[in-house]
């Protein structure tokens, strides 16, 4: 019982924190240099890993697609299948999971360390609101960077899928590209991008909240980081289901 109660209290705290972040996000001063710094940190931190996982995901999709569709003689549709899977689903979800592991955990550790070494108290004592100064730039940056990284993932994935589909599975490149064009629509892209935006906000809010409310020294920061990664991963899949359901359910 105590555990369930703690989870609900946690969730309540998280929601209030998100509200507070939103309220401060629209207040001046807008610290553009901090935003750019965070966007660069997330970009530098995550682009490589997102590109590599994207490439391999696309390659696997092409192999699996070819295996399934060849049975119906439909291997020409593999290109469309790979593209739609990446853009609507795998791009946003895998990117969010990668950003959680790479940048989300780093954010929690950094803010958690600042909390337990009283750097956050010190900032408050200087009449600067730490949510405004520390949390807002990270959340805004992650929300902006996630769709960009998601596009990187999907583009690399499509490239990987093409290489495998055309050069390994020997699907003719003409139909491969044609079916991509006829199957992939603008709504697929907006669906994928809106997921990525939501994931960016959710992942960064969880990461910052865990760090911001960390306590209990180095060990507490470690626990907070673990919690941030676990809950972000769960949240990504739950939010993914909800958004997919709203869109096509």
């Amino acid at each position: 019982m105590g555990r369930i109660r703690a989870v609900f209290e946690d969730f309540g705290g998280q929601v209030l924190f998100a509200g507070e972040t939103l309220a401060w996000a629209v207040r001046p001063p807008f610290r553009l240099e901090l935003l750019l710094h965070q966007a660069a940190a997330i970009g530098v931190g995550s682009t490589f890993i997102v590109a590599v996982t994207g490439l391999f995901s696309g390659m696997v999709l092409a192999l699996q697609g070819n295996y399934a569709m060849r049975q119906f003689g439909a291997e020409g549709y593999v290109g469309g299948f790979v593209a739609i899977s990446l853009v609507r689903e795998l791009g946003p979800v895998f990117t969010a999971l990668m950003v959680t592991g790479r940048s989300g955990s780093a954010i929690t550790t950094e803010l958690g360390t600042m909390r337990v070494t009283e750097q956050i108290d010190a900032m408050e004592s200087m009449a600067v609101n730490p949510v405004h100064y520390l949390v807002v730039p990270r959340v805004v940056a992650a929300t902006l960077m996630m769709p960009i990284l998601s596009v990187v993932f999907s583009a690399m994935g499509y490239l990987g899928g093409y290489l495998i589909g055309v050069y390994v599975s020997l699907i003719p490149p003409g139909p491969y590209l044609d079916h991509t064009k006829s199957m992939l629509d603008v709504p697929d892209m907006t669906h994928g991008l809106s997921k990525a935006v939501m994931f960016g906000a959710v992942v960064s809010l969880i990461a910052t909240y865990r760090g911001y409310s960390a306590s209990g020294g180095a060990r507490g920061v470690g626990d907070a980081t673990t919690q941030a990664v676990v809950w972000s991963s769960v949240a990504i899949l739950v939010v993914d289901y909800l958004l997919t359901f709203i869109s096509i359910g």
């Binding site: 950094e110 360390t113 600042m114 070494t117 009283e118 750097q119 108290d121 010190a122 900032m123 408050e124 004592s125 200087m126 009449a127 600067v128 609101n129």
Partner: peptide, 23 residues
């Protein structure tokens, strides 16, 4: 909240552990 942040403008504080921003 914001009122507290504003009220702190008159203060300076030295923390026991210095609490310098390490970044």
């Amino acid at each position: 909240g914001r009122a507290l942040t504003e009220a702190r403008r008159v203060f300076g504080m030295v923390f026991q552990g210095a609490a310098l921003f390490d970044s």
